[in-house]
Design a protein around this nucleic acid. Structure first.
Lengths: 162, 162
DNA sequence: CACAAGTTTCAATAATTATTGAAACTTGTG
DNA sequence: CACAAGTTTCAATAATTATTGAAACTTGTG
């Protein structure tokens, strides 16, 4: 007797929906909004470009939300506008090369978080103080260690972006 | 005339407070709670171990918050308990080696997010389908690309952890 | 075993963040 | 230049997430 799998296989649409859900959850735990991640996921697995209307419909989100999310994804460089001659409506298509996608994400996050952090650290490290004070020395050395880590990370990320 | 900087220099306590604030903001944008990041920052720049009481006082947070946050930091491996003989109260001290700190953070996030994502992707990639259907092929190929990226990231992160 | 000195849990609440949706805006066309 | 077909903005609101604080629990000691 050949064992046959009785559970109904996922349809393509269900598989896509599940992927969009997973991508949304992941995004949320890295500090980006669930909708942003979901719109990105939907466009990643769409062979064709989609309009704002399509996004609203397929993800049941509002026009405003769709508009702002799409703008942010354009800003990250993760999606492109596709303009069709003679049509008013804008279509969006995702960068499909995952290496490029990675670069975009690293570039954006580095700029927003790491560079900002380095600036704060530099400012704090400039604090003049009494080198005889153990407490001051401890703080300063902690700061220097963190700065060094920031510098190393910066170099590594820059290299990863090629 | 020698130009003298008139702005009052930061005191050590102010500098620490500013560091704690910055670290808190950074943490928040990477999806960890502000308090978690702040407790970590405070312990990072404290030469001595601190008790729950100390944390509550210095960050003006509740006992419950302090307790849960400390437990989570222990779980990440970012802080240690220091027990003093004959004392009931627990003291906490941060891992100060930033290389170790990085490892702990990578290990925890990899386990929580990347490994989880890989499992979801594997499950979706197992979807049987009609290889003649262009839509199916497009989805499958997107999925494979993402899986490959996940695998490469996994290897890179594992290497970074040494 | 009662008590003191702590820690943990978790339901209620506060604070924050994301989302809606209607009004304002933009742009191309007859 | 009026209108149609879209997009964007942003105040109000909904949803989510973090925090409080009091009660329950734990553990060592006289």
């Amino acid at each position: 007797m050949q064992p046959t799998d009785n559970s109904p296989a996922l349809t393509l649409a269900e598989a896509k929906a599940q992927f969009i859900h997973t991508w949304g959850v992941s995004g949320a735990s890295w500090g980006v909004s669930k909708t942003l991640a979901q719109v990105h996921a939907l466009l990643l697995v769409s062979p064709a470009a989609l309009s704002t209307e399509d996004l609203m419909e397929q993800l049941t989100i509002s026009r405003g939300n769709a508009s702002m999310t799409v703008r942010e994804l354009l800003d990250w460089g993760l999606i492109y506008k596709e303009l069709r001659p003679g049509e008013r409506r804008e279509y969006f298509i995702a960068e499909k090369d995952m290496l490029q996608v990675t670069r975009c994400i690293i570039r954006a996050r580095k700029r927003r978080e790491l560079d900002q952090m380095k600036r704060s650290l530099d400012q704090l490290a400039a604090l003049p103080g009494d080198a005889a004070d153990a407490d001051y020395r401890a703080f300063h050395s902690a700061l220097t260690d963190i700065q060094q880590l920031a510098t190393v990370s910066d170099k590594l990320l820059t290299r990863l972006m090629q």
